[in-house]
Amino acid sequence: MVFGWLRNRLKTVFEVTETRGVARRYFSLQVFDGAMVGVGLVFGLHLSGPHPFRVVAQTVVAVSIAMVISGWTGALISEKAEQEARIRRLELATLTALRNTLHTRVGSIAVLLVALVNALSPVVALLTVSLPYMITTLLGGETVYGLISSLAVTAALLLTAGAVVGRAAGINVLKTSGQMIGAGLAAAGLIILFETLF
């Protein structure tokens, strides 16, 4: 019952503010960004290591904090401006002040929701990718296994994210998953190439 009520409220917010597509785009972009940062971070830690677990965890947390603040601030500022512009456009079209109406109320909620998606998606992806490496370091195992596990998790995450985005947008799931995985592999390849050359 609570879930149904929440679902209806979210539906209204996204429909009235026309932010469903925006949130979906932010999600896919940021999951990809977070996963790529995670891959870079794990590679960097592995190549410059071995590091104790404390250093690995502190690095991951520091990058996560930076990503949350970056994602939250960027989306909040840009989406607030978008919503204000939308309200002004509607006010001009209806020749009515829309202050204290459903439009302004859900507009504020939409700004927060989109900022939340933009802030949390990359961090969840980053933590998911970094977790196997962190666990390996914590258990004192060979970090190369942690690196391989992190890369496998990245591939699975990108496949899932691609499938979710493809399904939500009503386009070929295999195509979106393939594109995401391809870009991930290209990034990993370039990192290896760069680290080998220098």
Binding site: T12, E15, V16, E18, L102
Partner: peptide
């Protein structure tokens, strides 16, 4: 009544 497209007439 003149209204924006959202909420739609059902809502």
């Amino acid at each position: 009544v003149l209204k924006p497209h959202q909420p739609d007439i059902v809502e």
